[in-house]
């Protein structure tokens, strides 16, 4: 890669990671101020995964997301205003306030939906990959899901079919070691989840999920493979969430030392240590992202709530 391209990619990475970070911080603020209905599962600390993975995609590719989906959406270029409005339950949100944090969907960006059912989106993403084959396109689908989702039957059923039929999909496990309070190491014998790929006869790889470059390189290879019709891959990104399971969970079941160790090498720090961008370049990105985020918050806060009658639309289409 040329030096210029290196810079461009680095700027893109930092922009998306920082945008996700700031977006999530503001979601948390809204929650604390009592302006966000319900709960939200924050992506804080895991920004490098979605950022690196989505950077490998074409505009017409698809992603499947989860309950912890804000980061995937931001990385896919979803509209921040409409995302934040949805999270506040406003009429201007992506789903007109019907979905909320856990169900933001943005079909215009190939985002097949966040999902409230753990493992629920894995077959759907796999279906999108099958559809690409049926339609004769070379679109690729990325399916993001957590370590614990990989213990649902949907994961095993889907990955087996994708492998058997060489479907153009990449399964990305965001291994943050926990499913709510349950440490994955208490409920699985083999803690390296990527090794499951062997059983399905597909490539499997683990990467440092806090290093955006490591994620990018691994996913890029897998996406290229999928696009050429060579079948699916499984990539395990080892990472950690900063907050509890959701905004209302203090997360006291985790060892403070473990959290501190992961925070010490969180995605933005790992990125900066590479020294690709100057302090001035970073400051410039941060300033412009902060403006976007402030605007999204203002837009969401000032947007009206939906009319009651809105509840009765979209059950069916004509």
């Amino acid at each position: 890669m040329s030096a210029k391209k290196d810079k461009e990619l680095a700027k893109q990475f930092y922009t998306v990671m920082y945008r996700t970070r700031r977006f999530e911080e503001e979601v948390f603020e809204f929650y604390k101020r009592g302006l966000m209905p319900g709960l939200a599962h924050l992506y804080l600390g895991e920004e490098a995964v979605a950022t690196g993975a989505c950077a490998t995609l074409r505009d017409d590719d698809y992603i499947g997301s989860t309950h912890r989906g804000h980061g995937h959406l931001v990385a896919r270029g979803a509209d921040l205003n409409r995302m934040m409005a949805e999270i506040l339950g406003k009429e201007t949100g992506y789903s007109k306030g019907k979905g909320g944090s856990m169900h933001i969907m943005a079909m215009d960006k190939g985002i097949l939906g966040a999902n409230g059912i753990v493992g629920g989106e894995i077959p759907i993403a796999t279906g999108a990959a099958y559809s690409a084959v049926l339609r004769g396109t070379d679109q690729v689908t990325l399916a993001f899901f957590g370590d614990s989702a990989s213990n649902e039957g949907t994961f095993h059923e889907s990955i087996n079919m994708a492998a058997a039929w060489n479907l153009p999909i990449v399964y990305i496990i965001e291994n943050n070691l926990f499913g709510i309070s349950v440490d994955i190491r208490r409920v699985t014998k083999e803690h390296d989840l990527y090794k499951r790929a062997v059983g399905y006869g597909i490539p499997g790889e683990a990467v440092d999920g806090n290093d955006v470059y490591a994620v990018y390189e691994a996913v890029k290879k897998a996406v290229e493979r999928a696009r050429k019709g060579e079948g699916p891959s499984l990539i395990e990104c080892k990472t950690y969430r900063w907050q509890g399971h959701h905004v209302g969970d203090p997360g006291e079941y985790r060892a403070p030392e473990e959290l501190a160790a992961w925070k010490a090498r969180e995605p933005l720090i790992v990125f900066k240590e590479k020294g690709i961008l100057t302090d001035a370049e970073i400051a410039e990105i941060e300033e412009s992202v902060n403006k976007e985020i402030a605007e999204a918050c203002k837009f969401a806060e000032e947007s009206p709530y939906p009319q009651e009658s809105e509840a009765f639309t979209d059950v069916f289409v004509d």
């Binding site: 789903s95 939906p306 809105e310 009765f312």
Partner: peptide, 16 residues
């Protein structure tokens, strides 16, 4: 409860 999936926004959910 009205015959629609339950929406997220309190503005929509409570009336149902």
């Amino acid at each position: 409860t009205a015959d629609v999936p339950l929406p997220f926004s309190p503005a929509l959910e409570f009336p149902l």
